[in-house]
Structures are given as structure tokens and as C-alpha cells.
Design a protein around this nucleic acid. Structure first.
Lengths: 229, 229
DNA sequence: GTCTATAGGGTGATAGAC
DNA sequence: GTCTATCACCCTATAGAC
């Protein structure tokens, strides 16, 4: 039928796959189990997806989109960078813990992607999360002029790494109160790093201004800052 | 033949499994591929290991032991806690990057373990790394009396999480220079956290001493510090 | 687009000779 | 302890009717 119905079925398959993956893990998830969870005949999977691998990659893409969207919505505007870092980490952690099973599947699928020649998808995932955190930080930072975008990206990478590390510890050996303490430490570390970056940023600006004043009637201008990625 | 020969064959199987896992990933590693890599007949696997799953868990155990042993050897004595944190992180990172493929397999196997009812092994892995870092830190900290063992464990967890997060980023989207910068940030963060813990530790000691002096001729003693895990 | 039935092959595990 | 041969099952994917 129409592509609307088709898309609905494809989505139904993805949802079924997600349930099957949560229940069995990537290793033990077969197309038959997916079809059963999605309540579609086995052949329907292969009509909508080129292969099992392609279906699982679609699931990972879905998971990335859902997670980043949820975290973006949960984010609230903060007055300063320090409280932004704090709120961001607290809300992210709360969400990730609440969706523990999905996060476990997401890690499994990421490693699966690395093996299936879908490195691009792992990279996309990485970018999606770094950009998410960077945007949320920059929303606040640009108002106070505290940090430029690339500094925000560096801070975002630090936060992402911290969250990943903490989550993996919680998955490997669950202990909520230990993780809660770890989160507090991470918040402080993130705030300290933000402060350090701000100081460096201010110093760069001062130097640039001084240099610009000195060269004002020597060179015809263009003091654009290089933006390293 | 003797159990010596038997152990040698079992080890040969583990080495073959490791090679097969590096080449194919956990998902695509079959007992046949393992047998081929190990140059043993298929049935030999099942004589030495109860099941494929048991064999893979043995591989993970082997990997944990090898990694912790290597990192322990690479560690050098440091004069103070700050340089201990730095050296520890630098050496660990260098080793992990050099053995990138093994680390990828280790992550895959850990998640596999979580699905195979071998949560205990994931916990053992977690403990092995936390204890490794804690011991290396405490070796230095106890000499200066800077930190007690449980503070060292907290610092160890922070370091472990940071390393894990950094390594996952490098696996998902490889970029050595970006990771190198991330490592520098992590070193500073670890050193800052160490300083914070030292300050707290000193304050605790002062309070305890003051309290002990005040209570000297009121109570009969026992000011043992509680050690939380 | 959806379904039933099945092809074609790979899987983990084992029996039984040596 | 080691090996060959094989079992019994499950896998992904597709052919072809509707």
C-alpha cells in the first residue's frame, strides 16, 4: 500500500527489534525473534530492510535520534556555564539510568557497527552526542561570551567521556550510590574545566586585542580567529 | 596426556580464540574459526571448555589478567601524587592505544558476559581495574600520608571512567590528536580531584585530632576511622 | 506490500575410534 | 587427550502465490 503504511510497518519492525534486543542482547537476537516481537511474518523484515545488519543499523540510528532528542528536551536554560554543566550532567545521567536497558543495547550496537563496516554510524553517534552537549553549552556560553564554539566542543567531549565512563561502570558493576558520588565528582571536574577554558579564552582575547591595537596602522586588518576542530 | 600438556593445549585454544575475535569480532566468531586459528580440531575445544560461552569467558578472564599485569609492570614509582596520576594515565593510555584491537574485543566480551549470566565476570573486571589504579595510587599516597585507601579508590574510579570514556571515543571516531588533548585534560582533572581529596583528608584528620584531644580524659579511646567501600 | 513455505548453509555439540 | 564424522537444529534470505 502507500508509503505511509509502509513506513508504519517499517517502524513497527524497528520497535520489535528494539524489544528483542533488550530481551536477548545483540548476539542472541535473530530475525525470527524480531519478527515475533514485531508481530510480522519473517519475510516482511526482508522486504523493508536489505539485511539483518541493515535493520540493526536502522535501530541504532533510531536509538541515537531518540536519545539526543530526549536529552535536548530535558535540557533547561541555565544562567551561567557552571550551572549549565551541572544541570546537563544531572539530567543526562538521570535519563541514561532510567533507560539503562536501551543504553546497553546502544553500546552493543555501536560495537556491532564497528565490525559490520558501519564505522560511519559510530562516528555519527559520536558527533550527535558531542554536538548535543556542545550546543547546550554554547547556548549559555555565547550569551556571556565566556566560551567560543570550539571550546564548548572540547568541554562537551570531556562531559561525554565522563558520562560514558560512569555508565559503563554502572553497567559492569551496578551501584547507584557509588555512581551518584561519581556524578558529583564529574560535575565538579566539568565545572573546573569550564573555568579553565574561560580563563584561557579571556587571555586569548586580551592578547588579540593588544596585538590588534599595535598593528592597527601597520596592517590592513583581518584578525579572524582560526577555528580548530 | 599429563595436565601440563592439557594446559598448554587449552592455552593454545585461548590464543586462537583471541586471534579469531580480533579478526571477526564476537558476533562473527564461531567455534570453527577458533579451532582453525588455534590449529586444533573442533572437538578439542569442547574437551577443554564446557561450551563456547565458557571459552569466551575464559578469554575475557585472560585478557583482564594480561592487561592489568602489563599496566602494573609499566607503572613507575612517582615522587608525589600529582605526578603519579599523570604517569599512570599516560602509560595506561599508551598501552591501551597500542593494544587497540584487544581493547575492542575486551569491551565486546564484557557486554557478552552481561548477557550470558556472567555478570560476576564483568564485576571482576571492574574490580581488577579499580584495584589496579587504587594500588598504584596508594603506593605513593601512603608514603606522604596524603590519602587513605578509600580515597585512592575514589580517585581510581574517576581515572578508570575517564580512560574508558576516552577510549570509547577513540574507537567510535578515531582521532589521535583529539584524544591526546583529551588525555591532557583528564590528567589535569585527575590531579585536581586528587588535591581536593587531600584537602578533605587533612581536614578530617584535624577534626579528629581536635576531637580526640578534647575527649582524651572523657572516653577510654578507640578513634578508628570507618572505612567505607 | 504481505504472506507461506522452503532453500541452502552454518551452528554448537557429541559419539566413538584411536 | 585427540581426532573424524556427523547429528540435530537454527540461521538468513528468497521464491512465488495472493
Amino acid at each position: 500500500m502507500s508509503s505511509a503504511k509502509s513506513a508504519r510497518t517499517a517502524n513497527q519492525v524497528i520497535q520489535g527489534a528494539l524489544r528483542a534486543l533488550c530481551l536477548n542482547g545483540v548476539q542472541a537476537t535473530t530475525t525470527r525473534k524480531i519478527a515475533a516481537e514485531a508481530k510480522v511474518p519473517l519475510a516482511t523484515l526482508h522486504y523493508h530492510f536489505e539485511s539483518k545488519s541493515a535493520l540493526l543499523m536502522a535501530v541504532l540510528k533510531h536509538l541515537i535520534d531518540e536519545t539526543t532528542a530526549a536529552l535536548r528536551i530535558e535540557a533547561k536554560r541555565s544562567a551561567d556555564l557552571a550551572s549549565c554543566v551541572e544541570q546537563l550532567l544531572r539530567r543526562a545521567w538521570l535519563f541514561l539510568i532510567r533507560t539503562r536497558d536501551l543504553q546497553l543495547v546502544q553500546y552493543e550496537l555501536t560495537f556491532y557497527a564497528l565490525r559490520e563496516g558501519a564505522q560511519w554510524l559510530a562516528e555519527r553517534q559520536y558527533d550527535a552526542y558531542v554536538n548535543l552537549y556542545r550546543d547546550l553549552l554554547f547556548d549559555v556560553a555565547k550569551q556571556t561570551g565566556a566560551l567560543n564554539a570550539s571550546d564548548c566542543a572540547a568541554l562537551a567531549r570531556f562531559i561525554l567521556a565522563g558520562i560514558d565512563g560512569l555508565l559503563i561502570q554502572e553497567l559492569a558493576k551496578p551501584n547507584r550510590s557509588r555512581s551518584a558520588k561519581g556524578l558529583e565528582v564529574l560535575i565538579r571536574a566539568g565545572q573546573s574545566y569550564a573555568l579553565l577554558l574561560q580563563k584561557e579564552c579571556r587571555e586569548r582575547n586580551h592578547r588579540r586585542q593588544k596585538k590588534a591595537t599595535m598593528e592597527l596602522d601597520v596592517l590592513p586588518g583581518s584578525g579572524q580567529a582560526a577555528l580548530s576542530v
